[in-house]
Design a binder for these strands. Structure first.
Lengths: 206, 206
DNA sequence: CAAAATTAAACAATCGTTTAATTTTAAAGC
DNA sequence: GCTTTAAAATTAAACGATTGTTTAATTTTG
């Protein structure tokens, strides 16, 4: 997926607007205005508004699998690697939270017939990699059995996104007034919360 | 919040459509058509499309606080009550998942200036009630200290909604083909997953 | 000088809302 | 019990504004 400078400019602006106002809530005129380009350029470069979104998804969903494998293949304990995986997921989702929010919202709209195949394939890869890792840990009696493995990733992503979606609430209730405070809360409190909770779920040792 | 038969009919149809296609993605003509009423009736009864959403939120967000207090004031162990609270949250969100999805989506759209005060006030009440319950458990040495209490509810709601939003993925990957299978997975596997994980996080006893 | 990029303008379709006319409802008057 | 009557409910049609996309002309590029 190669984009020239102008295309990248459009994608970046559109990503921000789609994440903030939704796909249907954003007009091509808003995108054109904010990206300082003519309205016709969107059709010219991408074909349509829908295809712009598809290009965006493919462009943004770069290989997460590689980073995941690097950790899994490390020579450290299962618990240590599991903790690193959790931290990687949070950082990854946080860094790309706009495109993930867009995909989540549009994916759950039953009538949208956009092809999110690229997203779904990558998701499947992540689930398979994690399942294999946990299974190995179980075989070597490092991880508990009878765990609902498919729900580990939803817990990580869900906890992050529920916080993210309700920032208005958390800001006012828990004194997270500055962007730095929020950044710190995500990278420390949320990561630690998930690590503590999920390790307690899967790790055998006390 | 009292609604006559016709108003209720409009609200129910609109709730379904807003949840499926988003607020911006749903037109008043779609609502009118599916509810078998004239387009003008929406303005006539609610004033506008935006006010229809506000009426919907107030109508649907009935008192959750009462059910929560009933469990908290029970004469059983902290752990038992905590497990019941988790189950209640999941059932409650699942039962009303449409309106929660709508509110979550619209709330995170930074420009929308709708008043979700009714939702935010209720959310605050739930957080306060849970915080008080956990604190008491900590005082009586039944619950661990140094827990990030504000993240317990996001973990419950987030895990549920990530699963819910990605049903397309889970259906194909984990053989959840029938509505009954999904219902069972939510009421048993998800509830159990959250109970195991969160109890491991907060409960002291093994 | 041909290809690519950019533009303003126009396209038909749809958006949310309002209007003005008509029908239905239900209580009051006799 | 029937008519009267004003309010409430419902309708089709029109409103101007905005939607995504296309066109045809112009400018820029290499």
């Amino acid at each position: 997926m190669e984009l020239n400078e102008k295309q990248l400019q459009i994608v970046q602006v559109a990503e921000k607007l789609f994440a903030e106002h939704g796909f249907a809530g954003t007009s091509v005129r808003q995108i054109a205005k904010e990206a300082n380009i003519n309205i016709a350029m969107i059709s010219y470069y991408f074909g349509s508004k829908e295809k712009l979104l598809e290009h965006m998804v493919v462009y943004r969903m770069s290989d997460f699998k590689g980073e995941l494998d690097t950790i899994i293949n490390q020579d450290s304990s299962f618990k240590s690697r599991f903790n690193q995986i959790i931290e990687l997921f949070v950082q990854r989702i946080h860094k790309n939270n706009r495109i993930y929010k867009i995909v989540h919202t549009e994916l759950s709209n039953s009538t949208r017939c956009l092809t999110f195949e690229h997203y779904l394939v990558q998701k499947k890869n992540n689930y398979d990699a994690l399942t294999e890792f946990i299974s190995k840990g179980q075989e070597q009696h490092e991880f508990k059995k009878n765990i609902e493995i498919p729900l580990i990733i939803p817990t990580i992503l869900g906890t992050y996104f529920d916080f993210h979606h309700n920032q208005v609430f958390f800001k006012s209730t828990y004194n997270l007034d500055t962007p730095e405070a929020i950044e710190h809360y995500i990278n420390h409190s949320i990561v630690k919360h998930l690590q503590t909770m999920l390790c307690a779920l899967v790790c055998l040792e006390a």
